[in-house]
Design a protein around this nucleic acid. Structure first.
Lengths: 342, 342
DNA sequence: GAGTTTTGAGCAAACGATTGCACATTTTGA
DNA sequence: TCAAAATGTGCAATCGTTTGCTCAAAACTC
């Protein structure tokens, strides 16, 4: 491996000079610069990142920390989009991305400590689904540069980016109400995640505000896993007061719901309307195409990285709480055929 | 930041001793070990990864290098599954994963050089779609520990893991032939990718071996992007000699095909049968559920990491070429209703 | 033309670990 | 009982950079 010293020797200068050429320091003469650069080129020099990090105490690396039950995340286009956004920005900003997953809870704490406390990374993008995640507290306690994709309370040094999930669900529900529905159900995901809680709240709010009662049987406890969405359907379609529309926690679950309902012999949207969240690429390829709330997933990721880098570079205390706007994408699953041109 | 020296001072020993306690060297007394460990605990010591890497010349980090047009990759569950597999193993093996994407071609070479030649990572998992990717050559020339997910020729120091795509397509096509089809088409993805080429070859082989002619119009040049699958349909369903079955390059495209065909008023599987590749989670939630060749995506990722780590640790020259077995998952899209119990 | 400023480059000390070698002490063995 | 072996620890060099300080030479001042 060719080091800075080799270059120095070959160029007849000191290592300091070579180092300064690299970081184009102002006090190096044009001539030396040219000569050293040529020799670096010739000898195929590449700076040793580790050595540099050691003295500069900065690694130019960010970590994406996945919540423990990461398995499911990967099942979803959602995560891919998020990653794409994060990567797009971090690459542009010249940061490397470390993907840190953990297998077990103990392992998790340990992995993160190693990365964070071992000065392995300069900052982390945390994808946490639970508000009281001990990781959040740990990072906050160390005042470690962190951007959380999600929501938390009581830590004023944790920057967050999130969707306004309450509002998003409110909008989705209101959309259904405007279509004339009054018996609207909600297919919830993993119950204790903040997304689930918030979206449920938004749904409740919309219903209440419209003066509509909620039958507890309409709240269907599913899981993010698509299969469960399907199973839930045989139940819901057979209760006495059957809902005529459903707000579904995410698109993948909606695929399951759609298939379940169809198999039971009902039609979407004519027997039951559907709207879900995330607007993954496949949503528009379902039959009927799924109406979905686009939460700007890519943007969410991009912004997360952006905020983190800004925090690191300018140390400008960016805005702590950041919301990415969402928008309703109405397709076929939420509009009854007879209303299409009504 | 508390360093090894601080611990040494507090414990009244030399830094060397502390270092040896950490790497539990055999010649350290029980008493010292206990004492030092207690102090490390008390003072919250975490070894500086950079410093360690510098002297050990090893970073305990692997890179996942994404091909340039990574955008599409992320659109697919396929990539998520792969990542999940890679991560599952590397985490278990104690390696960190760096996700390296590049924005532009120039950028790409540059990024990789920095990581590889700058001794930033110990090895790379390369996801390359083109056989003649200059990155492959570059890594091979440097004899850098590399596992390629895919196929290449002429580099005996590049370990590969791959699906036998020819055989997979052969099997898929044969499955359709066995169902009585003779007019079978092929929806190809991005033409110059090895996957496309290989799968097309397998299809051709199966047709030829069964003595079936291929109408060139049946080879439909789509793209991985699902929309194109849809557009292609209006063309293919209107040619004189319409195929009665299609082998589709991947599941996402198949979703597009399915929707296209359905909208044109045809029925899958009764008017046209479909089989595709990858068996992503959503495949079984389509209506009809998609038949698909499961290529063991998770396993592909897991094995890639496994092979790389083995190459690094034992330096045992693992097998250069590795094939992950595939299997046909027959669902509804490839079985006509009247044949179901026939 | 002497004093001051600017420019260009080198010395050597970090950064936080690891490790070969040396050395003192203890244990072993015949 | 004494040499040899085993055990426990420290010294100091090293990994490949960066950077504050120093100093000589060149370029300005007036």
């Amino acid at each position: 491996m060719v080091t800075i010293k080799d270059i120095a020797k070959a160029a007849g200068v000191s290592p300091s000079t070579v180092s300064r050429v690299i970081s184009n320091h102002s006090r190096i003469s044009k001539a030396t610069t040219i000569k050293v650069k040529r020799i670096m080129e010739e000898m195929g020099y590449h700076p040793n990142v580790m050595a540099k990090s050691l003295v500069s105490k900065t690694t130019n690396t960010l970590a994406i920390v996945l919540p423990r039950p990461a398995e499911e995340l990967f099942q979803d286009f959602f995560f891919g989009e998020l990653l794409r956004g994060i990567l797009a920005h971090s690459t542009k900003a010249g940061y490397d991305m470390l993907l840190a997953a953990a297998t077990s809870p103990t392992d998790e704490q340990e992995t993160i400590s190693r990365l964070v406390l071992g000065r392995r990374v300069d900052g982390v993008v945390l994808l946490s689904s639970r508000q009281d995640d001990p990781l959040i507290k740990m990072l906050a306690d160390h005042d470690f540069p962190t951007v959380l994709i999600g929501r938390t309370e009581g830590h004023d040094n944790i920057i967050t980016v999130d969707t306004d999930n309450v509002q998003a669900a409110y909008d989705a529900t209101t959309h259904l109400i405007k279509q004339g529905h009054s018996k609207i159900g909600f297919v919830i995901g993993v119950p204790n995640l903040t997304v689930s809680v918030d979206r449920l709240e938004g749904y409740r709010k919309a219903m209440q505000q419209a003066g509509l009662a909620i039958n507890p049987e309409w709240i269907i406890d599913s899981e993010f896993l698509q299969q469960s969405g399907y199973r839930a359907m045989s139940f819901v379609m057979n209760i006495p007061e059957r809902p005529t529309a459903l707000v579904v926690i995410d698109d993948v679950t909606a695929f399951g719901v759609l298939r379940g309902v169809t198999e039971l012999g009902f039609s979407v949207p004519n027997d039951i309307c559907l709207i879900s969240f995330n607007n993954i690429a496949l949503s528009e390829l379902a039959s009927p195409a799924l109406s979905s709330v686009d939460i700007g997933t890519y943007q969410l990721g991009y912004t997360a990285s952006h905020l983190l880098v800004r925090r690191l570079q300018d140390n400008a205390s960016s805005q702590i709480r950041n919301i990415i706007p969402h928008r309703l994408v109405v397709r076929e699953s939420s509009i009854k055929d007879n209303q299409k041109r009504g």
